[in-house]
Design a binder for these strands. Structure first.
Ligand SMILES: [Mn+2]
Ligand SMILES: [Mn+2]
Ligand SMILES: [Mn+2]
Ligand SMILES: [Mn+2]
Lengths: 217, 217
DNA sequence: ATATATTTTTAGACTTATCTAAAATAATAG
DNA sequence: CTATTATTTTAGATAAGTCTAAAAATATAT
């Protein structure tokens, strides 16, 4: 069907579209794919020919309906495998991304749905991201950036903006986990650092950290 | 580490060495890999450079210790994944080979052992083939071809010589499964077809079928 | 509006894995 | 032992995906 490289590009474009809803520029995509702009141009031509993206020279790129469908399938597989790795194989949430990055490309008509059944239809992956269903429908949870909370406000840590290894390890170290109830104790005007409290402890986090925490009120 | 193609070739050579213990010829390997002899020659040069095989022009090929170690790792992964697919995802034994053929190439230092732990250290895959351990040690079960049994002799169906899709489906249809106790009722001298009996039923199998059934006495 | 800087595309090269056709070597048969 | 056949290797092409360097297009600044 589609090559591993094609699937990765589609997923990359999808992720960027989620943030910006404008056409994605060649350079932006190149950075995300950790490749060169010239390689991106080549690939966009190929994806365009296969009707997976809308692409006109110098105009950036956008997924077609077909492209989005394929991207969501890959995202679904990625997140189901991540769930499996954490839940059944006892991996920690910061170890699974790289492996899921490979598993998401396994070709089979039946595997994904069988895996989902085995996992009992999880709705979210280990990083709090929603798992698209069989038809590509994806749940949107309304969350707000921790930065937006005022002193005294409470909420639940729902998901992360950045699920990179270093950030996940930081959260591990600070004993912060998804579903933790968080209360804002104080906000330091000087550097916007935030003093927060969970059920078990208190700590101060930087503005940068707070920006990566999505809170459900 | 090693590419998917390289791993597949190593596995192919390993499988052929199990049968013949002589150097494997280019054509034999080409047929097994469903590719052309010229492609095989190219790959053998590459594998030789990486010290995975011993190869001299026109002399055929043989795995080095390193090559065998790599091959056994791939076999281990293949069979563990097959076990997972049948045991946990509810696949039938004839459906899993193609998927495991892909899963066996997932790169991770930890995945295989974690999977094995999750599966509770199975010793055999769904086709009765032994699963190599962490160190590449592989269990050898002494079996005998069903063709070798005399009338009246009994044994247990242990594994298969040919685990191809068509053959597995044939066994499904005839209600023959691994671990079935089998007794030879009669052997027809004309075409060497064999009349056998299991706990639940009787049937006649051809010489060709019998040749693919490994029996533990 | 024109010069400069930035972004994007093109041109050409490289790697991996494959193929076909031709050449070289080895095996076999008379 | 030589001629024929079969096997194996080489030569040259192709496709996917990547890269660097140069050219082209677009954006920005004076
Ligand atoms: Mn991937
Ligand atoms: Mn995730
Ligand atoms: Mn394989
Ligand atoms: Mn098997």
């Amino acid at each position: 069907m589609y090559s591993q490289a094609e699937e990765n590009y589609l997923k990359g474009i999808y992720a960027l579209e989620e943030k910006s809803r404008q056409n994605i520029s060649t350079n932006t995509l190149a950075e995300r794919m950790r490749t060169k702009a010239s390689s991106v141009t080549d690939m966009l031509k190929k994806l365009s020919l296969k009707e997976l993206v809308t692409y006109k020279k110098y105009q950036g790129v956008k997924l077609t309906d077909l492209g989005k469908k394929v991207a969501l399938k890959v995202v679904r597989k990625h997140r189901l495998w991540e769930y499996f790795l954490v839940k059944n194989l006892n991996y920690s949430w910061h170890e699974v991304h790289e492996i899921a990055e490979q598993l998401e490309h396994i070709k089979s008509e039946t595997l994904t749905d069988k895996l989902e059944t085995f996992l009992k239809h999880p709705k979210f992956d280990p990083h709090g991201d929603p798992i698209p269903d069989k038809d590509g429908k994806i749940m949107l949870i309304k969350t707000v950036n921790l930065l937006k909370l005022k002193v005294g406000q409470k909420g639940v840590l729902d998901s992360l903006k950045d699920s990179s290894d270093v950030f996940l390890k930081y959260l591990n170290k600070k004993n912060l986990a998804l579903r933790d109830r968080i209360k804002v104790i104080d906000i330091e005007p000087f550097d916007n650092s935030i003093h927060i409290e969970t059920k078990t402890h208190q700590l101060v986090i930087s503005k940068k950290v707070a920006a990566n925490l999505n809170i459900k009120l």
